[in-house]
Structures are given as structure tokens and as C-alpha cells.
Computed example of a mutant assay.
Amino acid sequence: MNAAEARKLSEQNSSKLIESCFKKSVNNIDDLIKATSKIGEFSVRSNLTFSSNIRDAIINRLVVHYQDLGYHVEVNSLPLSKSISISWGEKEDPTSCN
């Protein structure tokens, strides 16, 4: 297989990678939400370090997913990744350690 063939195959299968990364991210974030809500926190933050060709597709899906569930979602750009913050308090919690 030459590079052009490999590139074409990767592009054809990128949706599978996006779906897999999305599901793993949801599981990780859901675990964070459960753990932090048990200790009285009202938000979580997760750094997302996917490759640039799929990062925006995954983040967009995460934003929609958590907004549809009633969460407030913010995305911040970092030099080599993006950070997603998800909160469920009615307003910013002044006692938060984050």
C-alpha cells in the first residue's frame, strides 16, 4: 500500500475513529461528573488531546451531547489541546476548588 492509498483508507474510516473517541470521552466525562458531584462539586474539566483532523468533530458532538442533557458547556483552546468544562450548578459555585 502506498501513502495515497493509506491516506484514502484513513479518510474513509475516520468516522469510526470519531465515534470511538466520542464514546470513550463520554464515558470518561460521565465518570468525572459522578465522582465530583458526590463530593459536592458543580463542574468538571477535561483536556482533549485528539489529533487535529478529528478534534473539532468530537468536541462538537460532546458539546451538543452535554447541552442536550442540560449542562452548561465551555470549550477553551490550549496550545496542544482543547479543554472542555461542563457544569450543572445554577450559577458559579464560590466554594469550588477548581
Rank of each mutant, 00 (worst) to 15 (best):
S96V: 11
S14E: 14
D68V: 07
S46T: 12
R45F: 04
Y71S: 11
N28A: 10
V44A: 03
L78A: 13
G70Q: 06
N27F: 07
S85M: 01
H72G: 00
Q67M: 13
L78D: 14
Q67I: 11
V73L: 04
V64Q: 04
P79H: 09
D56F: 15
D56H: 13
S20T: 14
M1A: 01
A35D: 13
P94E: 02
K82H: 11
P94Y: 09
G89E: 02
D68F: 06
E5P: 02
L80P: 08
N28P: 07
N76Y: 12
N53I: 12
S87D: 11
L48V: 05
D56A: 13
S83T: 11
G40I: 12
V26E: 02
A35H: 09
K82M: 13
D30P: 12
A6K: 15
I58P: 01
E19W: 04
E90L: 04
S85Q: 06
V26P: 10
W88T: 05
I54H: 10
V63F: 06
L80Q: 09
L69I: 07
N13C: 00
D68K: 14
D68M: 10
C21W: 04
V26C: 11
Y66A: 00
E5D: 07
S96F: 12
I84T: 07
I86M: 02
V63P: 12
A6F: 07
E5A: 04
Q12R: 14
N53L: 02
T36C: 12
S14G: 08
S25K: 02
A35K: 09
K16G: 03
A35C: 15
T36W: 15
V44Q: 09
G40S: 01
F22K: 00
Y71F: 15
L62I: 06
N60M: 08
D31T: 11
E11Y: 08
K91Y: 11
D93E: 03
L17T: 08
A35L: 15
S87G: 10
K34N: 09
L80Y: 13
Y66D: 09
R45H: 01
R61Q: 08
S15Y: 10
A35W: 12
A6L: 15
E74F: 03
E92S: 14
W88V: 00
V26N: 01
R61W: 00
S87C: 11
N13T: 09
D56N: 14
A4H: 00
L62K: 03
N27P: 01
N2G: 15
F22T: 02
L48R: 05
W88D: 05
H72K: 08
V44D: 15
C21M: 11
